[in-house]
């Protein structure tokens, strides 16, 4: 590494006390080591293991295993559905909390954080207590022919619970900082609620919204604990991809397990890439805005 590439960043020409060169090299090496050992090598290892039996093995493990195939289908239906539902919720919650003052507002904000403080396993347990066969509502729902626990509605509810705050938490600070002058002006000029949302609010918050949705989607795909409890592990029916990884691992089917894991890792990389593109775009937008 050339020493000139190790310059300390100077903030607007300000003096920032420099660390000696050897210390900088040491710290940067440490960072490379930490990220390499904790993140890069494990990621490479997933693909290495998934490819242990070559492309044919990977294809066989993913496409010809019916239960694995079903788990991919299930995850790729439940995750987007969760994102849609939580986006609607996040918009409603953020709108109510930032545009109006009402008693109980602080309580509402606090409640939004609760899913972060509860272990996903406990989330699953609570849903079982409510909707399970021995639960408070389970038997009644069963009479109506609705099965929640050990079925996809349970998986959806569990995933929704765990990812509930993501969109709202992204939008609330954003909408708070934007204020409501534009909206108030639009309403006094006769805009109806529909026009207000699509023409004024949405364009202002769209990138924050997309950011929240990306995070929500990533977490929805990866959710394990809550889903583990409510799924009942019926192969080919209620196993999502992360559950499938665990089941194959328990069956000592390492290539199969890593094959599913490699698809999940690719999705995670896609998430990171999406976030990166978005951040670049926002940075460019802000640069042009400040020029104007």
């Amino acid at each position: 590494m050339h020493p000139s590439s190790l310059r300390t960043k100077k903030t607007a020409g300000r003096f920032v006390a420099d660390e000696p060169l050897w210390l900088r090299i040491l710290l940067i090496t440490a960072v490379y080591l930490i990220i390499g050992l904790l993140i890069l090598v494990p990621m490479a290892y997933v693909f290495w293991q998934a490819m242990a039996e070559g492309w044919e093995g990977l294809v066989k493990n993913l496409w010809q295993d019916h239960d694995t195939w079903h788990s991919m289908w299930l995850t790729m239906t439940i995750a987007p559905l969760t994102v849609v539902l939580n986006t609607i919720f996040g918009l409603a919650a953020a709108w109510t909390i930032t545009k109006f003052k009402f008693p109980g507002r602080t309580l509402l904000v606090t409640l939004l954080d609760v899913p972060f403080a509860i272990s996903p396993v406990v989330v699953g347990l609570m849903l079982v207590l409510l909707f399970g066969m021995q639960g408070f509502l389970g038997p009644t729902l069963r009479e109506w022919g609705i099965k929640v626990i050990f079925a996809w509605p349970g998986l959806l509810l569990a995933t929704m619970f765990v990812t509930l705050p993501f969109v709202a938490r992204e939008l609330i600070p954003l909408m708070e900082s934007l204020g409501d002058e534009e909206e108030t002006a639009a309403v006094s000029l006769g805009a109806n609620p529909w026009q207000l949302f699509w023409r004024i609010t949405l364009p202002n918050i769209k990138w924050g919204l997309v950011y929240g949705m990306i995070q929500c989607h990533a977490r929805a795909i990866g959710e394990f604990g809550a889903v583990y409890v409510v799924s009942g592990h019926i192969a080919g029916e209620t196993d999502t991809m992360p559950l499938r990884v665990e089941k194959l691992f328990q069956e000592y089917n390492n290539p199969g397990s890593f094959a599913v894991a490699s698809v999940l890792t690719l999705m995670a990389l896609a998430t990171l890439f999406g976030k990166y593109i978005l951040e670049q775009y926002i940075a460019r937008q802000m640069a042009t805005d400040s020029v104007e």
């Binding site: 993140i39 990621m43 997933v46 293991q49 990866g222 394990f224 999940l264 890792t265 990171l272």
Partner: peptide, 22 residues
Amino acid sequence: LDSLIDLPFALPTAVAGLVFSS
């Protein structure tokens, strides 16, 4: 490296457990 920091948020934790145990 900066973009990689977010990987643990994006990666399903089951994958992390599987990889580190192996």
